[in-house]
Amino acid sequence: MSEQHQQPRVAVHKFSSCDGCQLAFLNLGEDLLALTERLDIVFFAEAGMMNESAEVDIAFVEGSISTAKDAQRIRNIREHSRYLITIGACATAGGLQALRNLAKSDDWVQAIYTNPEHIDTLDKVSPVREHVHVDFELWGCPINKNQLIALVNSLSLGVLPFEETDKLCMQCKRQQHACVMVTKGSPCMGPLTRSGCGALCPAFGRDCYGCYGPAENTNASALGQRFDGVGLLSTQISNRYLSIYSNEQAFACTGQGWNEES
């Protein structure tokens, strides 16, 4: 029994999301059984562990906050967790559904709220960090199992992992892929995007669409000009910025600028 207590106690919580980042656990295959020998998973609704209010060492949070109940629930989770880790674009940055924050039409927003007793929805979709302190954020739509395992390994040693903030371009160059922007004129988001995915899109000969979010020190407006140079319409440029990370300042300003031009 004492060994049981030495294992880190873990919870996996879900808010508004597609469930894809939880799959970084459930898609581990046989490694999932190895992981459950190292971790004591006490709450993970999709996997059937249901002790939601237990004190835990690590709380993984998927999904963005979009209802008053969500906002209360994330505060409770924070109170019961030593480390709170967001997994994926929704929890970390709001995700695709944060596009709702840009909706101009009051008519349709109000139409959704006509039954507030049934559909409890906040005005804005927000990332977890706008509600509670977050110890570490795993970026990506979706995150991958390498990020997850590196994080679990670091926390087992009592330290937070190294945060990947470099640009995808660097990873892509190290893997020696032909630059899709130079060779094909494809509107690649690599110069702005955080690395970590493994440069999957350039490896497939297509442009990166930014699913790992903004890297550090980005120059989003210059890349927007470059997209204009390769012949994209204003709407197309705006669409590239206002997608999974429309709620992140680094992408939002440029995206909104081109949106107004369209």
């Binding site: 999301s17 469930d19 894809g20 799959l23 695709l96 559904q97 709702r100 349709w108 559909i119 197309q236």
Partner: peptide, 29 residues
């Protein structure tokens, strides 16, 4: 009680190739 994620609205004014990348996000499974 999954909050409405309003996907169909987000797809408006998008190109078909971007729609293909976006609709994947309706379901991770």
């Amino acid at each position: 009680f999954e909050p409405p994620r309003l996907f169909e609205k987000f797809l408006e004014k998008r190109e078909t190739d971007q729609v293909i990348d976006m609709v994947a996000r309706i379901c991770g499974i």
